[in-house]
């Protein structure tokens, strides 16, 4: 009898309102993913949302690009407080002033800072923006408040991206590719230059392997497999 049961899934806590969604037809979204909030949630083509992933649009719009993988228990758009969108601009400006002080980052940090400034102008109502080819691993948290995660970024297991942080420059496409190692954290409003690897102990380095093409190809293959393994039910959220 138990062999007939394909899973034990206690009902996911669908608390709060059902958000307006814009889901691509080529999306793979598990039945037990949780979409909640009041603003628009957009997920572009060929992305994969694992069971128990949580997309929260209470603080603003959530946009996920093409070929992203959001693992189980990852939270995108967690609102540390209800006023996240109002706060985000203040957080960003304070972060920018702290950027001026000499830190551990390379001189490109200043350039990325100006890029982030331009991005924040257009993303005031935007709680979280994920680029293309982004992987958000198990239990990672991306806080709401104008947070931008650039193309090809890997957010490791249990990592935390603070409100208003910008990973990679937004204007240059396919040139971001930051890596957050497991249990690492990016403070709110921080601007992280392209190809940065962030470690859990706060250290950072630049990834110069030049594996972008290979990584994207690998992710595409992984998504192909996941599409077969995860039963998708986008109709539930529409």
């Amino acid at each position: 009898m138990s062999s007939k049961r394909h899973s034990i899934l206690p009902s996911a806590s669908q608390s709060g309102p059902k958000p307006p969604v814009h889901l691509s037809s080529s999306l793979t979204i598990a039945d037990s993913a949780v979409l909640t909030g009041t603003h628009q949630i957009t997920v572009h083509g060929e992305s994969v949302i694992h069971p128990r992933a949580r997309l929260d649009s209470h603080a603003g719009r959530v946009t996920i690009g093409r070929r992203c993988v959001v693992h189980e228990r990852a939270t995108i758009g967690s609102s540390s407080s209800g006023l996240a969108s109002a706060r985000s601009s203040a957080v960003l400006s304070s972060a920018r002033s702290s950027m001026a002080s000499p830190g551990v980052l390379s001189p490109t940090a200043a350039v990325a800072g100006s890029g982030g400034e331009a991005a924040s102008q257009s993303t005031t109502a935007q709680a979280v923006t994920l680029g293309d080819y982004v992987t958000v691993e198990v239990g990672a948290v991306i806080e709401a408040g104008g947070t931008v995660v650039g193309d090809g970024t890997v957010v490791g297991v249990g990592a935390r991206v603070g409100a208003g942080a910008v990973l990679g420059k937004r204007d240059l496409r396919h040139e971001n590719h930051c890596t957050l190692t497991p249990q690492s954290a990016v403070p709110p409003g921080d601007v992280v230059p392209d190809f940065t690897v962030v470690y859990a102990n706060g250290m950072r380095r630049t990834d110069r392997r030049g594996m972008v093409e290979l990584k994207n190809k690998g992710l595409a293959r992984q998504i192909e497999v996941l599409r077969r393994l995860i039963p998708s039910n986008p109709a539930k959220f529409a």
Partner: peptide, 24 residues
């Protein structure tokens, strides 16, 4: 009962194993 087991037909438990709530 509150544990999240996805794809139980592919999970083998040897016996006398405890799975606490919210484990996945």
């Amino acid at each position: 009962r509150k544990a999240t087991l996805v794809g139980t037909q592919h999970i083998m438990l040897g016996g006398k194993t405890v799975i606490q709530p919210d484990a996945m």
